[in-house]
Nucleic acid binder design. Structure first.
Lengths: 340, 340
DNA sequence: GATTGGCACTCGGTAGTCGTGAGTGCCAGG
DNA sequence: CCTGGCACTCACGACTACCGAGTGCCAATC
């Protein structure tokens, strides 16, 4: 039971510190929480918690703040998802339902997440690698140039301009179009790329150079890791509440937020929508962005995650709230994608 | 000639202040510039300049800083575009040429501009209203749902999902496709929307409900002002050098940068690529983002501007440099768009 | 008339001092 | 195991003093 009280103290410290952003002392703790013991007792517990590396004092004679390890314990054992308020649930559904296309969906998700958590929100576009091909379209730009459009099941669209060796009649373009579509429609990206590679051999020799060019463009678009790295960021204004004046400079943070490749690493491997990943402070796999935490999860129709989304905030963030918001947005987003 | 020296003093003040971010005094002025007169003389000139409202002192006993009016005079009469260094020219061409699609072009432009000017860069996507229709594509998603894709001359692509009343054979879809393309291909957006409105009447009655739905989606996509409002922002990390600790808080700035509608207003009416718009401090048509200036211009193939781009920075920015960079990027960007 | 050196004055910023109070650790008694 | 008491620490705010860059003005000079 002593052990229990120690954990209760830790929870109280985390909650108070998150709320006030100030080191919390033994006296104010017993005042604000019904712990049923005196400040002195709490002080003993605090000393023990500090011994275990769960809390620390910024100055010799100040209150305690949780360490990364303390937050970790809090997240793992002491907190449960804060249920969203009905107004928030409603906001999520109505806001996401108005979206007209994929860009819009992603953008709305970012804004929503940023508003709900009051942190920086990051949403990754659905990855190419797990999409299937819905359609391939060819559009004649000029006599020797074609626009190749790749439409994917997730709503993503990739386009490339292809220079073709000789000018093409509409009928020939149509022929290539059906040929390509027959080969890849409905296939997953990885398989589609393979199918395409074999195509040129099946066609009469005259058409091979053109088809090769088209195939090359498509394969390139499919395997373009650059476009797998697309993310959208929002709520950067929330960074200003990050370090209440002290501690972290937001300069490196802003820089990091422009490095989309880095953000993808922060979001981590696409995980199932069912699991929430919480990385706290030093657990964040990137040096140099100060005392930050990341709460992320995957989203996508079905159990397999298409991509990730999450929020980035100070280690002293409201984990239960952020976790609930992230999960809720991921769920609704998955549903939207499922429907479309 | 006295008048001339006064202007020389103003120029020196602007240049020094931009370089050091500190109020500049009479003594340091004569030290750093060859004015050929004593500090006392400069002080007299400064008093006159202050009288005219071109400079001001932040505190009773400190150096002078230029006022908005002072910057205005500097920009209009005392500065000329700073020629880009060869390395910068090279960076622009090589960087922009690697782009694969419109998104990429815009993103690269933003990064480039942010790097060159070390300010916040804003690039607007080519406006719908001045584009022409390159192609309309229909893709069957399910028996009762079609994906309508609108491909524009500027490389922009808009997509909408349409629920159609009854299920459609491929041939019928193909029929609608050719019908639609025949009506709008090559037309400017505004004209295309008109053409579409008349379409349903020319078709046999059975097809009307479906066609109407398709037309409605297309017209909606064409007139969607929301998607006209697309901009990309970059270099926000440069905001931290904005007020060197003092003066402006970057919170409202970060908020403003997420308000894309607002940014479009800041960029102003799409102007010809030949003209540079410089808005200084209070001239910026939006209260509440502190001491900011905007340097913007239009871009697009030919003389008519498709959209705008520019940078946003503190009033104490390097105008000659920023103006040169903005113009250079706009020119190269126009060329890229012209070619594709 | 323009320029200049001299001079008194202003005032923001830095450094030093001091008191206050929240918070701590420890200990002895319940 | 808990608690009240007590001495100690130390960040922070208030106050003061000082310094120096910069100014305005004026009389002398070119």
């Amino acid at each position: 039971m002593v052990e229990d009280r120690k954990l209760a103290v830790l929870r109280a410290i985390v909650e108070d510190y998150v709320a006030t952003h100030e080191p919390v002392g033994s006296k104010s703790l017993v005042e604000r929480h019904q712990l049923g013991v005196s400040p002195a007792t709490v002080r003993n517990d605090m000393a023990a918690l500090e011994e275990e590396g769960l809390i620390a004092q910024p100055h010799t004679s100040a209150g305690r703040i949780p360490t990364d390890k303390g937050y970790r314990l809090f997240v793992d054992r002491l907190s449960q998802l804060k249920p969203l308020r009905p107004a928030e649930r409603r906001a999520i559904t109505t806001f996401l339902e108005g979206a007209v296309d994929l860009d819009d969906v992603v953008q709305r998700s970012v804004r929503l997440l940023a508003q709900l958590t009051r942190q920086v929100a990051i949403v990754q576009y659905p990855t190419l690698s797990r999409s299937t091909v819905r359609h391939v379209e060819l559009v004649t730009l000029s006599s020797s140039r074609l626009l190749v459009i790749l439409i994917l099941s997730t709503g993503r669209i990739e386009q490339r301009v292809v220079e073709v060796p000789d000018s093409l009649h509409d009928e020939r373009v149509a022929g290539f179009r059906t040929l390509l579509n027959r080969a890849v429609m409905g296939e997953r990206i990885a398989d589609a790329a393979e199918r395409l590679a074999d195509l040129p051999e099946d066609v009469e020799p005259a058409g091979r150079p053109v088809l090769s060019a088209l195939v090359a463009a498509l394969v390139e678009a499919m395997s373009d890791h650059r476009s797998d790295e697309r993310v959208m960021v929002g709520g950067t204004a929330n960074l200003t509440r990050f370090g209440d004046g002290f501690e972290v400079s937001i300069q490196p943070l802003l820089e990091a937020l422009e490095e989309h490749v880095l953000l993808l690493k922060l979001l981590g491997e696409a995980s199932s929508p069912a699991t929430l990943t919480v990385r706290i402070g030093s657990e964040v796999p990137y040096e140099g962005l100060g005392a930050t935490s990341v709460v992320a999860t995957g989203y996508g129709p079905g159990a397999e995650a298409l991509a990730n989304l999450g929020v980035l905030g100070p280690t002293r963030m409201d984990y239960p709230g952020a976790m609930a918001s992230v999960r809720a947005v991921a769920q609704y987003l998955s549903k939207i994608l499922d429907e479309s």
